[in-house]
Design a binder for these strands. Structure first.
Length: 910
RNA sequence: GGGCGGGUAGCUCAGCUGGUUAGAGCAACUGGUUUACACCCAGUAGGUCGCAGGUUCGAGUCCUGUCUCGCCCACCA
């Protein structure tokens, strides 16, 4: 016997340990089976477990466990990401507390302490995920800085370089002054700012006392101005082209130039040109052969070109000081409140500086094929609408800045010959391995963007490019992987880049280089190279106010607390029950609580079962079915079995369409309402060996069906009830057809009809219970009921009489031919009266009847209208018309009965 | 500025290709220890499906417009 109460904690730990001990999650490659693999989105080693991980991991685990039950050969690769900037920030902060910088330590020592940090914290998150029950193949564990993974990253770099996709160049990049590195466009977040637009007067050198007014949001760059520009066609100003202006700060004068890039309708139509700090200005500067004067250094402080007064000052402080200076000099005409968008560094949270600098860039390969793969549904997105976001990004690609001025990460595998100019590729050594004479070379200082290494995750986790490792991991077997489950927020960062990486890197060198730029890959080749076939985008978890849950907002519950409180099973199924296809999820703890309630209910259903005889053989589905004697089965038994078949089909359909909440809902309703509320209750009346066997069958299948969602409790109950000696995780889940085969000796040919019959009986019971409740009669009270029904209905009622009496807790349920002077309800099976003895309130009852009759009349009216509509009759399908007719007849009959009852009661008053 | 998604009961959400009288859970209210379960059982109440048009025999579902919330993309300084 199982314990009286369900306590998730201990049993969850127990089973997880056993699963690991028995290597249940380890991949087993079998040619007999279909391969099914998922790459986990590797959590950052700096990450802490949040609700997003829980949702994401639960979904993956459900898919994986379901695939195992469907007899597929399964691989779920776990791993972690080295989280370049993020981890480096953490370690530098630690150093700062000791008053040191990374430069004090030097590169090697810094990396040592970074590794130490990673080793201490890096796997915490995976340990936490184990509490959730994730069934990853831990022997396939990968970290992006593992030696083999690093080798793969560098191989990818070298290949892309040789193909000409990677190049080094001087460009405007997003510079983060805090982390002191370049960033990709994707790592910059545009934020709306309430800024000021400064209208600044520039005195014209040749015409003293005459001014040009420039509108700018960045007065701190004035000292970097090399010109003032107006539009060539702007009649207000174009006569000034060729003259000069005094910089309002400093003592320089600069030319007034004309350029078509100036917007005449913005501000005053006059633009100050600061080529070092703005990409548009740079282009204009290039066109006019202007110098590039940088006044802000890479740490965000003004430099000596800004003048002694401002040198070393932070850019925002300088802005204020300059405002004051301008004001003092009378050069500030006015300021204006201004809403604009400013790019912020994702990690450091400060505005990025556009900085001209030399970086490594990647021109994305196989872009067209990446679009085709999605468009032609070789990779399917769910929900599908994300394909638009994906396509839009691919249509507007700019080269990706992949170098980072950091130390933590994959160091760029490029060496420069000592004593030679670095800008000539002839003196470069680009290779995974360093040159044979390292003393003559210097390696590039930079590391690669972390996302560059993430882009090859599905490849490198399967051993690419090492042939031996690939064979060992089953690359050819598992690739392309089946599903990817991730958030839509990294559709560019990760998903699209993985697709392009796969498409390019899996090509063999010769064919690809000849094909590059000339022809698209053929479809079958695209199909072979894509990294996965389905991408399921989860929703983002928000709090009750709709805010994104995050640690910094403090609005996220600690998942571990939730698991502690409701059990991993409860958290899993609760969360999935509120996770519609890729919609954002407003987190509600009640749903998680409900998840636990479901588990408790399941537990208790088993306790009920265990109270009865446990004699029968339960060790296999065949053994259980063997115990069922078709001859003794009643309508209820057949109806519930038929329902099971339907549920299995609906469940599988939902799961195969990634409709997790639907799948949960289907099981929930079947288990709670049909099985517990109804079948268990009525089976108490006619328990026999066959019924017990049916209980076993239903419970067994419920465990199998529920297992992907709530693996722990189902495993526990599976063994407690001795449904098998193997782990539940190893048991195949029967499809509807397979189940029907097992049940072939049971006659379910009238299943649908029996279900309808049970529905009618249920409606009868609900209606009469309601009547009893309305009259305030205690449930226990043995009230006399009468029913008036035609012979067909009577047959059905008589057939179920035992059950009806049990459920209504009455012994008196008799037939009558009369319309009685008693409160009544009408169902499809006839009229049911309740003998309320002396307590009948005629007036109140008449009122109730009146209301019901009115309601029915309304329904009747609607149906009649439809049936009198010629167009409806000619155009609607027959089944719909028949349905309306049936409804009408039914309602008419009901209303007539109620009217008769109404008259009868009225007679009492007169 | 462009794009995407949502607005259905007090709350959180279902409602697939238009078809009978719009559902569930939670919360509320009433009543309950019947041989699984008070993490339960029985019952009650609660909705002009954001708004306005249109298509249709028929619209929560399709179309147009509109309001509103959220997200993504975007170098007008």
């Amino acid at each position: 016997m199982i314990d009286v109460s369900y306590v998730p904690g201990d049993l969850e730990q127990k089973w997880y340990a056993k699963w690991l001990e028995n290597n249940l999650f380890t991949r087993k490659i079998s040619d007999q089976k279909i391969a099914y693999a998922i790459p986990i989105p590797p959590p950052n080693v700096t990450g802490i477990l949040h609700m997003g991980h829980i949702l994401n991991s639960t979904i993956q685990d459900v898919l994986i466990r379901y695939a195992r039950q469907k007899n597929k050969s399964v691989l779920w690769i776990p791993g972690t990401d080295h989280a370049g900037i993020s981890l480096q920030i953490k370690v530098e902060k630690e150093l700062a507390r000791q008053g040191k910088t990374r430069y004090d330590l030097g590169r090697e020592a810094f990396l040592t302490s970074a590794k130490r940090w990673r080793d201490q914290h890096g796997t915490i998150i995976l340990e936490q995920l184990k509490k959730l029950g994730v069934s990853c193949d831990w022997s396939a564990m990968k970290h992006t800085l593992d030696p083999d993974y690093s080798h793969a990253v560098l191989s990818a770099f070298v290949k892309l370089y040789r193909q000409g996709y990677i190049y080094k160049g001087v460009r405007f990049v997003n510079w983060c002054p805090v982390t002191m590195t370049a960033l990709s466009d994707e790592e910059v977040i545009m934020r709306q700012q309430h800024s000021l637009l400064y209208y600044i007067k520039y005195e014209i050198v040749e015409r003293p006392e005459e001014f040009l007014v420039v509108a700018t949001t960045r007065p701190e760059t004035i000292m970097g101005d090399v010109a003032i520009a107006v539009h060539l066609d702007d009649e207000r100003y174009n006569n000034l082209i060729g003259l000069h202006c005094w910089q309002p700060i400093g003592h320089k004068f600069i030319p007034i130039i004309g350029d078509k890039a100036v917007l005449q309708d913005f501000g005053t139509g006059v633009l100050k040109i600061t080529p070092a700090h703005d990409a548009t200005d740079f282009e204009i500067g290039q066109r006019h052969g202007l110098a590039t004067v940088s006044v802000i250094d890479k740490d965000g402080r003004l430099n000596r070109w800004a003048g002694q007064k401002f040198q070393g000052m932070d850019r925002f402080e300088a802005r204020q000081r300059i405002e004051a200076d301008l004001q003092e000099k009378g050069a500030l005409w006015r300021t204006e409140d201004y809403v604009n968008y400013v790019g912020f560094s994702e990690r450091a949270g400060v505005p990025v500086e556009p900085v001209l600098s030399e970086q490594w860039f990647l021109k994305y390969p196989r872009v067209e094929e990446a679009k085709i793969a999605i468009r032609e549904k070789m990779i399917r997105f769910r929900p599908e609408h994300w394909t638009k976001t994906y396509a839009h990004w691919l249509d507007n690609l700019k080269d990706w800045c992949i170098s980072r001025q950091l130390w933590w990460g994959h160091r760029i595998p490029v060496w420069y010959q000592k004593g030679m100019k670095r800008d000539d590729p002839k003196h470069w050594h680009v290779s995974v391995d360093c040159p044979k004479d390292p003393e003559n070379w210097e390696q590039d200082e930079d590391v690669l963007d972390t996302w560059f290494s993430s882009a090859i995750w599905p490849l490198a986790t399967l051993g690419w490019p090492n042939k031996e490792a690939m064979a060992q991991m089953g690359f050819d077997y598992f690739y392309p992987m089946a599903d990817l489950v991730t958030g839509p927020d990294i559709i560019f960062f990760w998903v699209a880049r993985m697709v392009m990486s796969g498409l390019n890197l899996l090509g063999d060198e010769e064919t690809d280089s000849s094909m590059r730029g000339e022809a698209l890959l053929p479809h079958d080749e695209i199909q072979r190279r894509i990294p996965f076939k389905n991408v399921y985008f989860t929703g983002i978890i928000r709090d009750a106010q709709g805010q994104k849950m995050s640690k910094s907002l403090g609005n996220s519950p600690d998942p571990l607390d939730l698991i502690e409180k409701y059990g991993a099973d409860g958290v899993r199924i609760g969360l999935l029950s509120m996770a519609p296809k890729g919609q954002d999820i407003l987190f509600a703890e009640e749903r998680v609580a409900q998840g636990k309630k479901l588990c408790t209910k399941l537990w208790n259903a088993f306790r009920f079962r265990q109270q009865s005889s446990l004699d029968g053989d339960r060790s296999s589905i065949t053994a259980i079915v063997e115990r069922i004697d078709d001859v003794v089965l009643e309508v209820d038994d057949r109806a519930i079995l038929k329902r099971l078949l339907i549920v299995v089909e609906e469940f599988e359909h939902a799961l195969e369409n990634y409709e997790f909440n639907c799948a949960v809902q289907t099981l929930y309703t079947f288990f709670w309402n049909h099985y517990c509320d109804w079948y268990i209750e009525i089976s108490k009346v006619h328990t026999n060996a066959s019924v017990l066997a049916i209980h076993d069958l239903l419970l067994r299948q419920l465990l199998l069906l529920f297992h992907p969602f709530i693996p722990f409790i189902t495993e526990e109950l599976w063994h407690a009830q001795a449904y098998g000696t193997r782990f539940l995780s190893e048991e195949p889940l029967e499809s509807r057809a397979q189940l029907r085969k097992y049940l072939k000796k049971i006659d379910l040919s009238h299943g649908e009809q029996f279900i309808a019959e049970i529905d009618a009986i249920q409606a009868l019971v609900v209606a009469t219970r309601a009547l009893k409740a309305q009259y305030g009669l205690s449930a226990k009270r043995n009230v006399q009921f009468y029913f008036k029904a035609d012979s067909a209905a009577e047959g059905i009622i008589q057939h179920h009489l035992k059950h009806i009496k049990y459920l209504l807790l009455t012994k008196l349920f008799d037939r009558t031919n009369e319309v009685l002077q008693l409160p009544a309800v009408v169902t499809t099976l006839g009229v049911f009266y309740i003998d309320v003895a002396g307590s009948l309130d005629v007036a109140a009852e008449r009122e109730r009847l009146q209301r019901e009759i009115e309601q029915l009349e309304q329904y009747i009216e609607i149906s009649k209208k439809k049936l009198h509509n010629e167009d409806f009759l000619t155009r609607a399908p027959e089944s719909v018309i028949a349905g309306v007719q049936d409804l009408l007849d039914e309602n008419v009959a009901k209303s007539e009965e109620l009217k008769a009852n109404f008259l009868k009661l009225s007679a009492l008053v007169e």
